[in-house]
Amino acid sequence: MQVCRPVRDLLPGDHAWFPFASEEEQGHVIGPWIEHGLEIRDKVIYITDAEPWELPGLYGRDLGFAVRQGLLSLIPLGEACLTQGMFDPQKYLATLNDEIAKAQEQEFRGIRLTAENSWIFDQPFGDSRVDFCEQRLDAAVAPSVSVTAICQTDVRRCGGGRFSLLDSHHEVRVLPNPDFDDPQLTITRTYQPLGLHLRGEIDVTRRLRFAEALGSLPPTTETVCLDLAEVTFVSLDAFGVITDFTRKRGPRCRVLLRHVDPAVRSIIDVVGLHRLPGIELGDG
């Protein structure tokens, strides 16, 4: 079974998958992961044509110093995995193995490895080449006590059975770091669908944090999904925060509550959904 884990909680040996649907979402996960890796002086290896100031979530931040210090290696696609313009799985795996070996020789405690693989599907035999690579990569990363890998996939370029193919190759799926986290409540931004994943109890003591998290969602969003699967308590005040949010956002805004616990649902049923303007119940 696949485990979902905030990017901050990835561990050596994790061969994780990060499906994303926007540059914002990609930046929200990859940016903090690279930044934190550099902070704790892990080796970060990124297969990308991007320049050091163009990395997801870190756009405009000049990471040239990290490149110069050998903490960050940005390896262009042509050098890492292309042969005559085509994706070459053997070359890709050899590049990764070389880079890992070099980092280990340099005695880095942690090695962070990432690349985006969606573009490979556009090439002939893309599916089988990705399948082959992911198997080999898993075999290399899973037993490691120093290497963490994130395979990034732009799901807008990954239809059909490719999603489930990639899903099956990774035991860990990466989530963004929570916007707020304490023993009572964890709030994590979600992108597919757009909204928040909540865990714990929402009451007046977390009103501001909850309102802030809702308020931070893009103002043009018409449907906000709140995943309440792990929420065990919602106070009347918290429902008030949601209705206040929809009122401020205007008549087109609605908040879809998903995976609502039956006990929480009973509050909505008794009070009446019509008394909670802008709130709708979604699937699950």
């Binding site: 009451d203 106070s235 009347l236």
Partner: peptide, 17 residues
């Protein structure tokens, strides 16, 4: 227990708040 208990908890929380 169940929904009845939850409704009580929401009610007590509101009044105590």
């Amino acid at each position: 227990g169940g929904p009845l208990l939850h409704q009580l908890l929401v009610a007590v929380t509101e009044v105590a708040t």
